[in-house]
Structures are given as structure tokens and as C-alpha cells.
């Protein structure tokens, strides 16, 4: 990898100062994507600004109608958290299915969401549950956060500090993992809030997306049978050696039905 400088800020104010001092600074969260990317010389930051020692960036807080997860909280902590397991079980399951145990001990929710990998799991949870992404500057609705492949609404230097997930009435997440990487070939989250249903799909397209046709059908009747095949056209889906776009389109329907069944217990 190319050489870089190191900054180890301990407060959000120091993070901003460190970024301002750097010619082309890059945040380092858990590093499970960034470090391999640096090794491949696909990125050349002047400085890495490590977030590991910033006070108050890690932890999980359960409220009455939402659960807040700080940005540097590791996947393994989300997977094992008793409040999340009981209030949003699909979110704990999703975190426990990312990568492998070693990745889950390092990788963070903030890093994953900011990176917005098209096959990452967390974007499906953030969009599917209609979470709020809280940064050092503002609050961003999930519907406005994911703007394209590896692209988000975050401004240059804007830092995710926490993500707040509303507690749904029922929720399910099913993914078809790539057997080598455990990334989602396709992953579908279905969440029900009273008369509102949200369906978010990751892995299938260039960026996580909702499926309004499924949401309408599930609002009318929250049952696996409500989801017909062919609701998502294959045209704009990912097509690679792992799966054709037609196969991914088919999987969306299959996994959505299973996610509804999971939500219904």
C-alpha cells in the first residue's frame, strides 16, 4: 500500500481538526474493507483518521420505540445485544451473518453504512426499517441516505455518529449469501409498522432499494402469498459470475416471501 500519516483523535472536535489538517484524509473505522482496499492500492489517502479512540462513538441504547447504535459499534456487539435480539431480532441476525466471526469483531455499523457496498447487509436494515442516520452535522432519513453504488448523502468530511432504528411490529431478514464471502448475493428485509410495510433489497442492484409493489401488496395482506413473482424486473439488476440478473430477480421474490414468513414467526 501507499504510505500515509496517522491521526488518532479522541473527540469529534479533534476528528474535524484532524481532517482539516490532512490533505486528503480518510476515516478508518473497523478497517475490514478499507485495509484490503489500501493493500490493493485502490485508495491513496494522505492520512488515516482512526475513529477507534474517539470518545462516545460506541454503544447501544434501547429506548421505548427505537434502538440507537453508535457508529463504532462492532457487528458482533449488535448480534449479541439482548435489547436488539428481543426488539428487532432480524437486525441482530443480520449483524451475526456479516462476513465471519473475525470480521464481526472488527467491522462497524458506521463503516458499513458509510461505505454503502451494493452487497452489504446493513444498508438493507437501515432502509428496510426506515432508520435515521445521525451525523456530526445533521440527521438523514434512510430514504435520502443511499444515493448510488458506494455513494451516500454524506458530505465530504461528514461523520456518522449513530443510527437510530425504529422498533417494528414485525420484521424479517433473509439473505442468500455468496458462499465464499458471505456478502449478500441478494438480501431482503421486510418490516411492518402498523399499516406501513417497508421492503428493502440489497445485493441485487447497484445500490440498496425499496420495492413499492411488494410494500403495497403486503400492506393489503401481510402474508408470503401476497408477493407474486416478477414484481422486480431483471433489467437493472447486477449480472456477474456469481448470479445472473434473472436469477437475482427470482431470488428477490423467494427471499421476500421467506422474510415475511420469518416476520410472522
Amino acid at each position: 500500500m501507499y504510505d500515509f500519516g496517522i491521526k488518532n483523535p479522541t473527540s469529534i472536535d479533534d476528528v474535524k481538526a484532524a481532517l482539516g489538517d490532512a490533505e486528503d484524509g480518510q476515516f478508518l473505522a473497523g478497517g475490514q474493507t478499507l485495509i484490503p482496499v489500501l493493500k490493493q492500492r485502490l485508495a491513496m489517502p494522505s492520512d488515516l483518521i482512526s475513529l477507534s479512540r474517539v470518545d462516545g462513538l460506541s454503544g447501544i441504547t434501547a429506548g421505548g420505540d427505537s434502538i440507537s447504535i453508535k457508529a463504532m459499534t462492532r457487528h458482533a456487539e449488535v448480534a449479541a445485544n439482548a435489547d436488539i435480539k428481543s426488539a428487532i431480532p432480524a437486525l441482530a441476525k443480520l449483524a451475526g451473518g456479516i462476513g465471519d466471526p473475525h470480521v464481526r469483531n472488527r467491522g462497524t455499523i458506521g463503516g458499513s453504512v458509510a461505505n454503502n457496498d451494493p452487497a452489504a447487509d446493513y444498508p438493507a436494515a437501515v432502509l428496510g426499517l426506515g432508520a435515521t442516520v445521525i451525523t456530526n452535522e445533521r440527521e438523514i432519513d434512510a430514504d435520502n441516505f443511499f444515493t448510488g453504488m458506494f455513494d451516500t448523502a454524506l458530505n465530504e468530511g461528514e461523520l456518522i455518529t449513530e443510527i437510530s432504528f425504529p422498533i417494528p411490529e414485525a420484521v424479517g431478514y433473509i439473505k442468500f449469501p455468496n458462499p465464499a464471502t458471505r456478502y449478500a448475493l441478494v438480501g431482503v428485509m421486510v418490516a411492518k409498522f402498523g399499516n406501513t410495510v417497508r421492503v428493502a433489497v440489497t445485493g441485487a442492484g447497484p445500490c440498496v432499494f425499496r420495492v413499492p409493489e411488494m410494500e403495497q401488496a403486503l400492506t393489503a395482506s401481510f402474508s408470503p402469498d401476497s408477493i407474486k413473482d416478477g414484481l422486480v424486473p431483471a433489467d437493472d439488476l447486477n449480472n456477474d459470475i456469481h448470479a445472473s440478473r434473472e436469477y437475482r430477480a427470482h431470488l428477490i421474490g423467494v427471499l421476500a416471501r421467506r422474510a415475511v414468513a420469518e416476520a410472522n414467526g
Binding site: 478497517g31 485495509i35 466471526p101 473475525h102 469483531n105
Partner: peptide, 16 residues
């Protein structure tokens, strides 16, 4: 193990 948790040591910087 890093503070008791397994990690891939090739995906962590020594200074971390």
C-alpha cells in the same frame, strides 16, 4: 486474539 477477541491480524494495523 486482540483483547480476547479473534481478529485477522492482516486486517488490523499494528498501531491500532
Amino acid at each position: 486474539t486482540l483483547d480476547g477477541k479473534t481478529v485477522k491480524s492482516c486486517a488490523v494495523f499494528a498501531w491500532e
